[in-house]
């Protein structure tokens, strides 16, 4: 079981490495979005309040996540997907995809955060909490968006559908993430964020469990 997941993940990495333009495209996407935001605000950078800094960062990350994860099912042809399904159980496939997307999101979020702080200034006072929050966010985005990407890939016009289907679904997650990272920005005591972190963990668990249960029905169609 674990070995099969490992092999499937290795396949995902190889696939990504062979199509480097997609990965490079994602990296360029987040860097250029951050830069556009920087230029839009550059005149009044010192007036950027933590509130705006925070909201902007998470919106950039949300769009990056949707774009990055939307391709996780359309990258491969239907015939090849069918072949995987004869080799592995659907649960292994969805878990490997979620794990891979989590790693991808952590890389993208890390890069996005470092570039964002470089140009927009670092206003975070509680860095460990912010990074932990970033990690939880990556897991949540990966888990909820992978299943939605699977759903959207089955329909035509999947790019629009992906956005329409995923925005409401990630919204509770996004609200919690913004709240915790606002606490981290202000350097509040960590006990203040405990409730929110608990809810974040619960939402992550709910989406993971649902992906695990629902994906077997999805791939058969």
């Amino acid at each position: 079981m674990m070995r099969q997941i490992g092999v499937l993940m290795e396949k995902e990495f190889r696939l990504e490495w062979r199509q480097r333009y997609a990965l490079n495209g994602m990296l360029l996407y987040i860097v250029s979005t951050v830069f556009v935001c920087f230029l839009s605000f550059s005149l009044r950078r010192n007036q950027l309040t933590p509130m705006v800094w925070n909201a902007l960062f998470w919106i950039i990350l949300l769009f990056t996540a949707i774009n990055a994860i939307a391709k996780s099912f359309v990258q491969e042809r239907a015939g090849r997907l069918l072949y995987y399904y004869t080799l592995a159980s659907p649960q292994q496939i969805i878990i490997s995809k979620i794990l891979y997307n989590t790693i991808l999101m952590v890389v993208l979020a890390g890069l996005g955060f470092s570039f964002y702080t470089l140009v927009m200034g670092n206003q975070v006072q509680d860095l460990p909490l912010f990074l932990a929050n970033l990690l939880l966010g990556s897991v949540g985005f990966a888990a909820s968006l992978t299943l939605v990407a699977g759903i959207a890939s089955k329909a035509e016009n999947s790019a629009t559908l992906m956005a329409v289907l995923s925005f409401p679904v990630v919204l509770p997650l996004l609200l919690m993430l913004i709240r915790v990272s606002k606490n981290a920005l202000d350097g509040l005591d960590r006990s203040v964020s405990l409730d929110e972190i608990g809810t974040l963990l619960a939402i992550d668990a709910i989406v993971l469990a649902l992906s695990w249960m629902l994906f077997p029905y999805l791939w058969r169609s």
Binding site: V148, I151, V169, L171, P172, R220, S221
Partner: peptide, 18 residues
């Protein structure tokens, strides 16, 4: 039918915490 059923279940589960 199948795919919208999956989305329906997923949506309701996210709606509850919201």
């Amino acid at each position: 039918a199948r795919i919208s059923a999956i989305y329906n279940i997923f949506t309701f589960a996210v709606f509850i915490p919201l």
